[in-house]
Design a protein around this nucleic acid. Structure first.
Lengths: 246, 246
DNA sequence: CGTGGGTTTGAGTACTGTCAAAGTCGGTGG
DNA sequence: CCACCGACTTTGACAGTACTCAAACCCACG
């Protein structure tokens, strides 16, 4: 899905006012995203400045340090958000799922790189236009701020996770947390898709890939999870949660 | 400075409109806090709903899980913000300095406990009244959101810090970071006050008190810092920064 | 001068990292 | 259809950093 320029492919969806399908109103993430703050009328304004962008796996949506020319709402797929440290180490700040909003802070520059892990589709909003829209719609800003509060909380939870927990606890918390996020999206299931690789998980939890692999193997041997292609099946969620809570 | 009830002492400062000193206009943190977003007139509205609260060291301003009845702006002193984990471990999320705003997210409940490390003075704003004020002043909400963006960034930096860095790097980053925060407040100095104890630093960095103590001793022996009562003197900031950057 | 909280130092242990090699899986091309 | 290749993952042996437990130390305070 690479565009000829090598940049993410952007499609102006064209039918802004004569739309029947594909518009914001029909958007499947509308009610779980910041857009839920808007009235049907306001969605028109949003749609007028939106573009659909598609990314193939491993393609970057934006990069750390780059000027933030736009904000994004994910409508399909999963991305990894990471920073590169001066010494070459990589820190995966988190994973962005369907419904997540990227660029909440409306800051000048991106502090992370966002890279697709699976085929991704996002709604792109040009930053200046989006800010203008926000300026005249306090309810949207409120909603953004509310979301930012959630983000902050997530970040703090992650800090707590990284601080003084054993490798086993970290992995358990990661799995349970991911399941909860999927559940909130209405995608509850015993089988947990893991679109990210072991190295991504390791860089997210502050562990090495070997340790992550060993722990996952151990959880499998102890019958808490079952490793399946592309993810894990949670065999004994209760025990996993007990591990995570300790 | 304990009130007879055992609760933080609150003084309605009384002279809302006939004020000459002590009002928001003269507030020494006005320009470094969210209040900088307000016009002189708007400060009147803010002042009308503000109370000064004073805390003695070790006294709590609010507690984790408690209903968030108010938001606060720190005008003096330092607090520690921490969470207690189910197993009794404590995670110090961070330290709030003069000018910091507590309750940015305007959430229903506090996610951390805030406890004074030194004599503290804060401006207390009843939450409902503050939200009402925010609702009619978009510039204030913008400012709050901007601050939230900073907070989020700080939290992410802390995540990066906690993830896969050696104990020595963690302590160096902590010291350098604290110095930068003081510097931004116009309190640059070679002597770094450390109102928090070793245990607080340990719980902040995800280390044990023994490790923190050993590292600080080592940095002292290697002539990067000099341990002094109540803090440290930075002897060789450049070398410390190199350690922190690695 | 004794007490208590906080800090420092010491000895031993264990968890997780490092280095190295083998294994798995999917895709490609002969 | 099968062999090969490469990326990723798993497993193993060993080492090192930070943790645990324990004791000494320091200083402010009564």
């Amino acid at each position: 899905m690479l565009s000829p320029t090598g940049h993410p492919a952007a499609h102006d969806d064209g039918c802004h006012h004569g739309r029947s399908t594909g518009g914001c109103v029909d958007c499947k993430v509308r009610l779980i995203s910041v857009c839920a703050a808007l009235t049907i009328d306001e969605l028109d304004g949003l749609e007028a400045i939106s573009q659909v962008v598609e990314l193939a796996p491993r393609q970057a949506l934006f990069a750390q340090g780059e000027e933030a020319g736009a904000v994004y709402n994910i409508t399909e797929g999963t991305l990894r958000l990471f920073r590169l440290l001066p010494d070459g180490r990589r820190h995966v700040m988190g994973f962005a799922l369907i419904g997540d909003f990227l660029g909440l802070a409306l800051a000048e520059r991106f502090t992370v790189t966002a890279e697709a892990l699976s085929p991704v589709r996002v709604c792109r909003f040009e930053r200046a236009a989006f800010k203008a829209l926000v300026a005249e719609r306090p309810s949207l800003l409120e909603r953004l701020h509310e979301r930012a509060g959630c983000e902050l909380r997530l970040a703090q939870d992650q800090m707590t996770l990284l601080s003084r927990r054993t490798a086993e606890e970290k992995v358990a918390i990661f799995l349970v947390g991911l399941r909860e996020r999927y559940a909130r999206l209405g995608q509850a299931s015993v089988t947990l898709e893991l679109p990210m690789g072991r190295q991504d998980i390791a860089d997210h939890l502050g562990l090495t890939i070997e340790t992550v692999s060993r722990i996952i193997t151990r959880l499998d041997r102890e019958r808490m999870i079952l490793v399946v292609p592309g993810g894990v099946r949670l065999i004994d969620p209760a025990r996993l949660e007990r591990l995570a809570a300790s």
